[in-house]
Structure formats: structure tokens, C-alpha cells
């Protein structure tokens, strides 16, 4: 093999698999230490009080434990997946509204995701994070405000200049593959 960068480890996947396969509490504790304070911080930035954010973050972590088997690393990074759970719990617990969710795609019997696809998705998610960090402050603030719920959706129409498109094609590939194995 030619010399190249060490491929990025798909972060936190081992922990999710350990929770899924062996209900490993030590692995769950590592996930908890990393993600729970960030979920709490995000909820507080979105307007929740410290108490409510704490309670909601605990619910989010409990959901991660229960739904570990549903996580699909070819379609989302662990951080992305946890964000969607946090957002749903936030709507449910804090805004007390109903949250319609897209239909789950059923897994085929041998639909274990391809390692290469998983790593590339992870890499592209990391690149997206770097691109957000590198945006001019005004644009970065606009995006953050959109996700903290501080912008109406007409304001979000503003162009943000994010390199969108790569993760999309990666997820599309995973979906195509999934549909193919289902056939």
C-alpha cells in the first residue's frame, strides 16, 4: 500500500456497537461523558433552563441505549444521530409538540454497512464540521441560530456557502445499497 494518512477511525462506533451487542455499561459511560454535556449545552443554547436541559439530556442518553441497534453508520455519524434524538426529545419534552418522523427503512438480513462507506461518511462529516468552523463569523452565527431556533425559516433562506453535497451523495449511496440488498 502506498503511504497515506492513517484513515480516520469512525468515532464512537465501537462504543455504540458495545452498547448494542453486549449492553456494555463502561462503553455507555464513555459515550455519556462525551455527549451528555454537549446535548445539555445545546438545549440550553436553544432556550431550555439548566434543569430541563439536564432532564432532557438524560432522556436522550437513555434513548441512545435503547435504540443503539437502529443506528446506521453508513447514513449518519454518531454525533449526527445523537443530534436528531436530542432534537426530537426537545420538541417532545420542551415544546410539547408532536414530531412526525420519516418511515424507518427496514434492514435486510445481511445489510451490515460497508466499512469503507462508513469511514468516508465520517470523514466528510468531519470536513463539514471544519468548514462550519472556518466560515466568516456572521455566516457561522446564522447557521448556529437556525439550529438553536433563533431564526424563522424565511431568514434561513439566506445563502450560507456551506459545501453541501458530499454527505448527501454518501447517504444516497448507502440508501441505494440498502434498497438493493432488500430486493
Amino acid at each position: 500500500m502506498t503511504e497515506q494518512k492513517t484513515p480516520a477511525r469512525a468515532e464512537w462506533l465501537d462504543e455504540i456497537y458495545a452498547v448494542r451487542d453486549t449492553q456494555d455499561q463502561a462503553a455507555f459511560a464513555r459515550l455519556f461523558a462525551h455527549f451528555a454535556p454537549r446535548v445539555k449545552g445545546f438545549l440550553m443554547r436553544s432556550g431550555a433552563s439548566a434543569d430541563v436541559a439536564e432532564e432532557c439530556a438524560q432522556e436522550v442518553m437513555a434513548t441512545i441505549w435503547r435504540k443503539a441497534a437502529l443506528f446506521d453508520p453508513a447514513r449518519a455519524s454518531v454525533a449526527t444521530w445523537i443530534f436528531t434524538i436530542a432534537r426530537n426529545r426537545q420538541i417532545d419534552m420542551i415544546r410539547r409538540a408532536r414530531r412526525p418522523e420519516p418511515e424507518d427503512l427496514p434492514w435486510g438480513p445481511d445489510a451490515e454497512p460497508d466499512q469503507e462507506e462508513v469511514l468516508v461518511l465520517q470523514e466528510e462529516t468531519n470536513k463539514l464540521g471544519e468548514a462550519i468552523a472556518a466560515l466568516p463569523e456572521k455566516q457561522r452565527e446564522l447557521i448556529q441560530k437556525a439550529y438553536f431556533g433563533d431564526l424563522s425559516h424565511s431568514e434561513i433562506a439566506e445563502q450560507t456557502g456551506l459545501p453541501l453535497g458530499t454527505i448527501k451523495s454518501r447517504i444516497r449511496l448507502a440508501l441505494d445499497r440498502l434498497r438493493h440488498t432488500m430486493r
Partner: peptide
Amino acid sequence: CRSRLGEFEAVGGEVMMSAGAVSMSNDSF
């Protein structure tokens, strides 16, 4: 649209991870 949505959720994940951590209470685990 499912894959485009996945992309906007990835943006949300990155925003959440950079929002700043707030310590959980002692007995939270």
C-alpha cells in the same frame, strides 16, 4: 430528499458538538 435531509442533520450535529458543553449533575449517569 432523505439524503439531503441527512446532510442538514449532519450540520445540526456539528452545531451541537460545537455549542459548548455544560456539566451534567453528579448523579446524572
